[in-house]
Each structure stands twice: as structure tokens, then as C-alpha cells.
């Protein structure tokens, strides 16, 4: 059988210390954003995202509260698989917005499960190499950019 889940040693750049930021409007807190880096050696099409699950402080974040931003465009997680003309370059972060009304200041335990399809590594019809881009980290909420 082929290599199943590849995990490269760039995990530290998936959730950087300053990745978690509050997202406020003049009307008040709207939610927060989270920047996600690639743990791979090259960029990938956005459609390579096979699954993206976010858990903050042990609470899974509901899918309908999440929007993903890349190249100035927003996608619900359910549409990422269709975004095959968007390229996620290796030096650029994916930004996730969570519209939950905000979270408290201070540290938060962030667990990201992100599986990517290795789009050039096909082992059999419908069977592709997979990249484990998951990471866990305690992140302190930062102010807005």
C-alpha cells in the first residue's frame, strides 16, 4: 500500500503564536480569525482540502459559523472542494473567520484537524496520497490586525 498520511516537519508554522485574533466591528465583537500555514513543501490547490475541523477550548466549532478566506475570496468549508482554480501558495496563510460573537481574551486551546489531498500522487482510481496538516496549540487571543 502507498504512503497514507504524510506529515512534514513544518508543523510549527501551521498555528503560529500570533495566529488567533479577535474580529471586531464598531458594533462590537463579531468573532475571531485564525491563520493557518501549510505543513508541506509546496503550494496546493484549495480544492485539495479534504476535511477541515476546528476545535477551540474543547468545543467543536460548527461549520456554519466558519468562512475561509484565500486570495481575497471567501468560501464556506463545504465549498472548498470545488475551489480547484484557487492556489494556496506555500508562503501564504489560509485565514478562517469564525462568526460566533467573539471569545474571551487570554489563552485558548486550538485543535485543527486539516487533511489535504496530494493532488499529484494517485495510487489507484479515486485513491490519492494524503497530507496531515493538523496541529494543536495554545494560542493567546491577539488584537485586530
Amino acid at each position: 500500500m502507498p504512503t497514507s498520511y504524510m506529515k512534514l516537519p513544518y508543523e510549527d508554522r501551521v498555528l503560529r503564536p500570533e495566529a488567533l485574533r479577535s474580529y471586531d466591528l464598531e458594533t462590537g465583537p463579531v468573532g475571531y480569525s485564525l491563520d493557518i500555514g501549510l505543513n508541506y513543501y509546496r503550494g496546493l490547490p484549495l480544492s485539495a482540502v479534504e476535511s477541515l475541523e476546528l476545535t477551540v477550548d474543547a468545543e467543536p466549532v460548527p461549520e456554519h459559523l466558519i468562512l475561509v478566506e484565500l486570495n481575497g475570496k471567501l468560501f464556506p468549508t463545504s465549498q472548498l472542494s470545488a475551489a480547484f482554480t484557487e492556489f494556496w501558495p506555500i508562503k501564504k496563510d489560509l485565514r478562517i473567520y469564525v462568526f460566533n460573537g467573539g471569545i474571551e481574551d487570554g489563552p485558548h486551546q486550538v485543535d485543527l484537524r486539516l487533511i489535504l489531498r496530494c493532488v499529484y500522487m494517485q495510487f489507484a482510481p479515486g485513491v490519492w496520497g494524503m497530507i496531515d496538516n493538523s496541529a494543536s496549540r495554545t494560542l493567546t487571543l491577539q488584537g485586530e490586525r
Binding site: R42, S81, M121
Partner: peptide, 13 residues
């Protein structure tokens, strides 16, 4: 270069 032929999800290249 790369043959990124798996970019279309669920599509058999």
C-alpha cells in the same frame, strides 16, 4: 512541473 491532475475533487483525471 507537476501533474496536479487530482485538483478536481472526485474527478477521475
Amino acid at each position: 512541473g507537476y501533474m496536479d491532475v487530482g485538483r478536481i475533487t472526485g474527478h477521475d483525471p
